[in-house]
Computed example of a mutant assay.
Amino acid sequence: MLTNNLIISTPIDTSLMRGFVELEKTTVGLLPHRLPVNARTQFSDPQLALIETETSGVRLEFKTSATTIEIDVLPTRREIVGIRPRPNGVYDLCINGRLERQQSAKSATILLTDMSAGTTVRKDGPLQTLRFDGLPSGKKLIEIWLPHNEITELCALRANAPIEPLPNTEKSVWVHHGSSISHGSNAKSPTEIWPIIAARATGMDLMNMGFSGNALLDPFTARAIRDRRADFISVKIGINLVNMDLMRLRAFGPAVHGFLDTIRDGHPDTPLLMISPIYCPIHETTPGPGMFDLKALAEGQTKFLASGNSEEVQTGKLTLTVIRQHLQRIVEERSSHDPNIHYLDGLMLYGEQDHARLPLEDRLHPDAEVHRLIGQRFAPLLQSRCRL
């Protein structure tokens, strides 16, 4: 019988990974991507280049009798001058579907951005080893969910018993696209993000295409969804279009139709759910762009404001209220020839009454309790594939 001092190294490859689109080989290991290379060549936004490599929904899955597991990782964290750094990313280790252990890497490569100067400085950090000791004996299913708010290069995997890839199964695949709320902003750990809460409650295999600040109806994202295997697809659109002040109403409708048309090119009959924005008071009737609340920053708090004017809605500027109205209309029109498309009002997941009880701490993103609330409310819809 193997002891804790005898560690077996297992190569990390696609057979052990879930929740990624591609694995890029780097000088130290493997870097999971959530957008394919053809999409990555079609944008020049450095933020999205970082965001799509943050490992929200990415995990290692395997069976083993090991009582000790080690992984070597090289994390990369983003920081902004003048803003309190986010908590270190968490690695959630689950056994047979139940959260068992949590760890964070003590050090990481830091990307420090000075927004006033428009510069980013990189400070390289060392390789980190995370060791999970004293795990229960016997054959078990292990999931190691990688941090949702960090870039994670996977360098090595070791255990004191053999590691076995999971056999191919017919597990249903859910592909979800959304904003930072779907990416996991302000959640405490990777398994506490609302899409992952819903996926774990229903046994769905989640591919999380939630990209902070980048749910913008990009054609390359629609093509990435089109090309993925999917038994259920959901698209949550609205908040980024408002707080980026990206487009006017004239462009919004055709962009939504084009996004959905592209998905339908690859998934003509797959259940497809369009989700409108959850409640967010600063943007309900006030257009963007959104901005940091400078007074709050001076007091060491991160909060957001809407800098638009409600009168600008008459000129075609978007608000969350406007987006909900038009998304519902678009889905209703399409449903006459597409019976598998559905609409969900985001206020059913988190509405005004919920906000009165559980306000958005930074005025934009849910906290851990609200993530749980949304995930629990969404799980029955996911279970039924909207066939209620």
Results as ranks from 00 to 15, higher is better:
residue 273 L to D: 08
residue 287 P to Q: 14
residue 235 V to S: 04
residue 246 L to R: 15
residue 10 T to V: 09
residue 113 T to Q: 04
residue 43 F to Y: 13
residue 173 V to Y: 01
residue 329 R to N: 09
residue 51 I to G: 01
residue 349 L to Y: 05
residue 94 C to T: 01
residue 161 A to Q: 13
residue 322 V to A: 10
residue 346 G to D: 08
residue 323 I to V: 04
residue 339 P to F: 09
residue 324 R to T: 06
residue 40 R to E: 14
residue 102 Q to A: 04
residue 375 G to H: 01
residue 163 I to E: 13
residue 255 A to V: 04
residue 360 L to W: 08
residue 75 P to D: 13
residue 111 L to A: 03
residue 80 I to R: 01
residue 84 R to D: 02
residue 314 Q to G: 04
residue 72 D to P: 01
residue 297 L to S: 07
residue 376 Q to R: 09
residue 260 L to K: 09
residue 156 A to L: 06
residue 48 L to A: 05
residue 152 T to Q: 07
residue 177 H to T: 11
residue 195 P to C: 09
residue 51 I to V: 10
residue 120 T to E: 10
residue 334 R to K: 15
residue 207 M to V: 13
residue 254 P to D: 13
residue 129 T to D: 07
residue 16 L to A: 07
residue 354 D to G: 02
residue 386 C to Y: 14
residue 255 A to T: 06
residue 84 R to G: 02
residue 182 S to R: 00
residue 341 I to T: 11
residue 110 I to Y: 00
residue 121 V to R: 14
residue 28 V to F: 09
residue 230 A to K: 09
residue 50 L to H: 02
residue 270 T to N: 05
residue 122 R to F: 00
residue 347 L to T: 15
residue 176 H to W: 01
residue 26 T to Y: 09
residue 184 G to N: 04
residue 264 R to I: 11
residue 22 E to S: 12
residue 234 S to T: 11
residue 46 P to C: 03
residue 136 P to C: 12
residue 249 L to G: 00
residue 98 R to H: 08
residue 148 H to C: 07
residue 135 L to W: 08
residue 368 A to K: 06
residue 112 L to C: 02
residue 167 P to L: 06
residue 38 N to F: 14
residue 226 R to S: 15
residue 237 I to E: 10
residue 300 G to C: 06
residue 107 S to A: 14
residue 137 S to P: 03
residue 120 T to P: 00
residue 200 R to I: 00
residue 54 E to G: 00
